[in-house]
Amino acid sequence: MVEFPEMIDIPLAKAIDAGMEWLLTHLDGFFDAIGFVILQVVNAFEAVFLFLPWFILIPLVGLAGWKLVGKWKSGIVFMLLLILIGSFGYWELAMRTLALVIASVFFSLLMGIPLGIQMARSDRTQSILQPILDAMQTMPSFVYLIPALMFFGMGKVPAMFATIIYAVPPVIRLTNVGIRTVDREAVEASQAFGATPRQVLFDVQLPLAKPSIMVGVNQTTMMALAMVVMGSMIGAKGLGMEVLIAISRIEVGQGFEAGLSIVILAIIIDRITHSFSEKK
C-alpha cells in the first residue's frame, strides 16, 4: 500500500476540539440556560405522563386511534398493544420515553417550522441550510452524543439535545418543500389582492403546505424516537436503558421485551401523526 503523505495533514479534529473548548469556557452560561429550559419542558411532559394513570391513558389513546386514524379497530389494537407494554412491566419507563420524545419533537417543531419557512422564502438561506441539513442527517447519530455530553453532562438534557439535532432536519426540509411547491397561482392570487407577506403565509402557504409539513412532523417524530433510545447511553432513563442493560447482561428475553415496547410506541405514534398529513 502506498502511504498517504503525512505532510498533507489538515488538522480538522484539532480545530474542532479547540472550538469546543472555547465554547465550553466562554459560553458556559449560555448552555446552562438552554439546559435549564429543556429540562423544565421535559420535566413538565414527564410529570403529565407519569401522573396520568394507565386506565385513563389507554382509553385516550384508543379514542385517538379511532377518531384520528379513522377505524375503531385501530383504537382497539392500540389499546391492546399498550396493555402489552404494561404487562412487560415497562409502563413507567415507556411513559418517560414518551415524554422525552414528545418534548424533543416540541423543540424540533419550534425551531424547524420557522426555519423551513425562512428557507422557502429565500434561495440564499436554502443554499446555506441545504448542505448543513444533509450533513446533520448523514452524520452517525452517536457523534452528537459526545458534544452533547460535554455541554450538558449526563442525563435527559444532553439526550434531548442530541435528539433535537438529529430529528429536526425532516421537518425543516418538508416545510421548505411544502411551501415552495404550493400552487404558484394561489400565491399570486393572494398577492394580487394586496395581501402582505404575512397574510400570504398564513392564508395560503401554510394551509396548502400542511400535508407536506405533517409528513415532516411524522418523520421527525420517528427519528426522535429512534434517537431517544440512543440517548439512554448518556443517562436518559427509559426503555432504551433497559435494552442496554439487557445487552450488557446478555438477557435476550428481557432485551426483546424492551425492544418490542419501543416498537409499539413507534407504531402508535407513527399512525397517529401520519393521520394528520392525510386529512385536509
Partner: peptide
Amino acid sequence: TFGMVFQHYGLLPH
C-alpha cells in the same frame, strides 16, 4: 385598483 383572474383559477382549496 385590481382584480385578477388566473388560468388555473388560483383558488384556495381549503
